[in-house]
Simulated assay, not measured.
Amino acid sequence: MALRYALSEIRKHGTDRTWWRKRFLTHAVSRYFTDVRRPPATPVVEKDWDNLIVLDACRYDLFEEVHAETPLPGTLEKRRSVQSGTPGFLTENFADGEFHDTVYVTGNPYVNTDLPEETFHAVESVWKDGWDDDLQTVRPQTMADRTLSVAEKYPDKRIISHFLQPHAPFVGDVQLGERETFAIREQAMGNENATTRHRTPFEMLEAGEVSYDEVWTAYRSNLESSWPAVRQLLENLQGLTAVTSDHGNAMGERAWPFPIRVYGHPLGILIPALTEVPWLTHQNGTRKDVSADRPVDVDRQVDEKTNERLRMLGYAE
């Protein structure tokens, strides 16, 4: 059955160079990086923080560029993420542990679908009720407001706030690409018909339809759209707050030692463009007195069928 499916896929996509590149990345390059030459990386759960702001898909050099022009309070360093996509970041950081001293505030549905049900004390699913239907994302200010509310509700818990920006769709002042649907969210909400998605700006770059500078400018603008909300959290959350990312985005960098270019953020491709992320820390007042308590009931609103579809969809790969 597997061979028949493989032959069918080859007949269907055999002349598509992009399809072959993605298959090679998945079946050869990712295995090399994960099984043969895995770069050293420190999980975020082993770092020191009271509050963690995760800017989805923010590579270090992008953050550094914006920070140099509009500094945030705190000290900026570089760290290496354990994975090159959100599902891997979540699984490798959290799936094997219990973090009952932590509340996860998320604009990203993968937190609900890819982790065991009692991983955290609570999960605040902003992607369910804080969604902007026009922009097809969660606005940064919505995430900041909800995070501050959750921090007030749970003063003795560590807080993770997972923004969607600067991940596509690019909804800053400079916009690029289509954003009519967000299939990951629709699948998690139970819409079984949401099986298609639009190409990301990184796939458009790969196809030669837009330039590197066009994508970088829109990518940067998307990060800048989150800047005021991130600053608000840094200035108002109690304790030690860290700003980081789960992974970056590749824009044609090669996956050395393989002479193949990478676009977007395929899982398991542990190159610097995808794993070098910011680590900015800032402390307000005294550190939190954190305690662990039994998890609260969470309405995850997903089923196994949806879960499998999400894993197949990925982000853009």
Rank of each mutant, 00 (worst) to 15 (best):
A2W: 14
R4E: 13
L7I: 14
S8M: 13
W19Y: 08
K22C: 06
F24C: 07
A28V: 15
F33W: 06
F33A: 07
V45D: 00
V45F: 08
N51S: 15
I53H: 00
A57I: 05
C58G: 08
F63A: 00
E64M: 14
E69S: 07
L72T: 03
T75Q: 12
E77W: 12
A95P: 07
G97T: 07
T102Y: 04
G107M: 08
N108E: 11
L115Y: 03
E117G: 01
V123E: 01
D129Y: 07
W131G: 10
Q136S: 13
R139P: 02
M143R: 00
R146F: 01
K153C: 06
I160E: 05
P169W: 01
V174P: 03
I184N: 14
T196L: 15
R199V: 14
P201K: 01
D213Y: 13
V215K: 01
Y219L: 01
Y219P: 06
E224R: 15
R231Q: 15
V243K: 03
H247F: 10
I260P: 05
I269A: 13
I269G: 05
L270R: 07
I271G: 07
A273Q: 04
E276I: 02
E276T: 09
V277N: 08
W279Y: 10
T281R: 08
E304N: 14
E308G: 09
L310Y: 00
G314L: 11
